[in-house]
């Protein structure tokens, strides 16, 4: 982006050149600002939680389609080659994918990775970055229904 802006600007006369340079700089600044991931926590998913359903928080609605970063724990995946994994607030004693007497907590985030990454031990906190998406969605392969997702995500171990 920066390179493209500068090349265009260098062909222009000097007065205009400065203006364009300033403009390009501002645009670049704006773009980088938009792309910087906003931090999120598990407490910020829902504005209201109740027996009859939750309401997504204003923050979730505002950041929908934007890049966010969140820390959590990777639940053991459905299968090693899964396209997605479940991020939980705390490590889980029981694995709902493996044991039929366990069920997911109410505040989970489903993470779809851009590239496959190796499974990280559930006891180790990871930091995930991806594009936030909310609303009910059924994974076509597994039938797993999620309410809150990160798309095009990647994670790192802090």
């Amino acid at each position: 982006m920066i390179c493209l802006c500068l090349r265009k600007a260098l062909k222009a006369p000097s007065a205009l050149f400065l203006w364009r340079l300033c403009g390009a700089f501002l645009i670049c600044l704006l773009v980088s600002r938009v792309q910087a991931a906003e931090l999120m926590t598990f407490d910020e998913f829902y504005g209201k939680t109740g027996v009859l359903g939750f309401e997504f928080s204003e923050k979730v609605k505002r950041l929908s389609g934007k890049t966010v970063r969140i820390k959590g724990f990777m639940a053991p995946p459905l299968k090693a080659e899964s396209q997605f994994f479940v991020l939980t607030r705390a490590p889980m004693a029981l694995c709902p994918f493996c044991s039929s007497d366990a069920d997911w907590p109410e505040d989970i985030l489903v993470v779809y990775l851009t590239k496959r990454q190796t499974f990280v031990q559930n006891s180790r906190q990871i930091s995930v970055e991806g594009i936030l998406e909310y609303g009910s969605w059924t994974d076509p392969e597994s039938g797993f229904v999620s309410l809150l997702r990160l798309r095009q995500a990647s994670f790192s171990t802090p």
Partner: peptide, 16 residues
């Protein structure tokens, strides 16, 4: 277990 009573589009639901 209300999650299984709620239609899947309601946040908090676990129905399919």
């Amino acid at each position: 277990g209300s999650a299984y009573f709620l239609p899947k589009s309601t946040p908090g639901s676990k129905r399919t």
